[in-house]
Design a protein around this nucleic acid. Sequence first.
DNA 1: ATGAAAGCGCTAACAG
DNA 2: CTGTTAGCGCTTTCAT
Lengths: 341, 341
Amino acid sequence: MENPRLPATLADVAERAGVSRQTVSNAINNPDLLRPDTLARVRQAIDLLGYTPNHAARQLRTRSSRLIGLRLTPAQEFTANMAMDRFVRSLVEASREVGYHVLLFSGGPVAEGELPDPLGGYDDLLRSTAVDAFVITDTYLGNPQTVELSARRAPFVAFGRPWDEPDAAHPWVDVDGAAGVQAATDHVRARGHERIAWLGWRPGSRIGEDRRSGWHRAMTEHGLATAGLEAAVDDSVDAGRAAAGALLDAAGPTAFVCASDTLAVGALQALADRGRSVGDDVAVVGFDDSQVAQVMGLTSVRQPLEQVAVEIVADLSDLLGRGEYAARGLLLDPTLAVRRT
Amino acid sequence: MENPRLPATLADVAERAGVSRQTVSNAINNPDLLRPDTLARVRQAIDLLGYTPNHAARQLRTRSSRLIGLRLTPAQEFTANMAMDRFVRSLVEASREVGYHVLLFSGGPVAEGELPDPLGGYDDLLRSTAVDAFVITDTYLGNPQTVELSARRAPFVAFGRPWDEPDAAHPWVDVDGAAGVQAATDHVRARGHERIAWLGWRPGSRIGEDRRSGWHRAMTEHGLATAGLEAAVDDSVDAGRAAAGALLDAAGPTAFVCASDTLAVGALQALADRGRSVGDDVAVVGFDDSQVAQVMGLTSVRQPLEQVAVEIVADLSDLLGRGEYAARGLLLDPTLAVRRT
DNA sequence: ATGAAAGCGCTAACAG
DNA sequence: CTGTTAGCGCTTTCAT
């Protein structure tokens, strides 16, 4: 036996079990090929020596790293951070179940005043064959990653719709924000509210427009008026507070459906400013089910991030296993976390 | 030239540049060994072919994966999640700067009603030589990881003090919670408060005791009484609210220093319940500078997580580069994010 | 059902 | 300074 400091190799196991190295390899990769008694003997030796196949050697031979690359951007907004956290945890767990690990990388240093290189980091990982596939998460930037990676024939699955290219060929999974907002609007309508305001973001964000459409659709379906009942502002508490206040004074809504929890907190403050009681008097619904929503008892639309991760891994598994994939795009419905507001 | 679908190899570059494979290898790993003109020619060929060394081959040969393992637990509290997020982002970036990537793994499935295996996942990664080192983050559990990994001679750096083994031999980096709370207490004292209450956790948590000690030390140094000015409760908004309310009614504190933002929010609510104005009338300081603190304008102790990650990578770099390390333990001071409360 | 040979792409050790 | 040789640990033919 070799120095126990070094991990056991196939040869060690083979010697211990009295078979050839290939037989041990087969015992691991094609157990059916072995006679039951041989298999048992080999397995015993494996356990005894605590043998685990060397990752690098296997990767070199099979050209598969069993690693999924995920790029982390240095800094993001809060909700994006929180969302990322839930998503990543679930991604790691789902990946483990199909025998993959997650490799985190960053796009490299971002020079002062410059935008980060949208392709930074991908290229090296690809050429060094360090990962088998990527998960792309920032498709909302109108990102060139999908195009570039497709061109390179690099396997990937996107979290986020290809907004700009409706017939993009890559697989993706996304959350139906419009459906979530529509459900939120339906919910406050069912509670008796009719003057339901939309507190949203400035135009230009696909996600923001999508969420707004859910409100508009719900209002239309309920035959409710929308005129004068919406505001489009920056995603900050103060902006939300000011806009909600203005809306309250001008149009007297009894409910706010918001594009984010941040804006919803602003609405809550505007209501507090005016001494209105939230919950009974006026309803407020946020979006993202962030920590703030949970602590403040804010009703909020919750994205099924865990499920998104599971579906992405399923697609990836197909892609890497069969070389093709069934699902091209999958839209998941959020749920509503109903709380006091 | 080979099929351009496949990444270029050392041999491709060598052929293109008219040198041997070894010379190309040297051009990458020991450029000083080459004559300038040869080096230039090789580099040109590398650029032309878009060559990047194959990760698996290099790993197999050098026995170094240039990967740092980090275990993610499936679910944690909020602040832990947020903290993790900042930490991980910084870890990824710092690792990149020294040529490492971060490999995320999970501890495996946790059976219903059981505790997760504290060593789950580490072993396989170690034996398959998939990672060069680990970053351990949950040392506060009185975890067996450090002992086990030390015994296995696996390189690792811990985020968190070895509370139970003061003379543990492994390197670690931690945040001085007591110093943070002391600074917070000093801060409210400087604002004129004298009856400063401690809203903390139930005994049994080293971190909780450490944070409390900061308050106690500050009070003692200022010659202020502490009797009747503290509560120990579960880490929830409701518990904080109830405890702060009781404290308020019984001892009339004018300031609350809290073990967490969650408790601080509870204190804020207790104050609102009694119509007290926060900021001028009564001061409240939280801990962790979570999203909630930022949105609600809560003054809070902020852990230097980015710096923790940088220091951990520095230790790791030493450990892996020189086989030894200088720093044995490093305690970093938090800062105080001063806001309206 | 099991064994022998070859080689994935790279770098350490040595030779020239 | 550059080239040759060998082999890291594994899996994939192909024999047996």
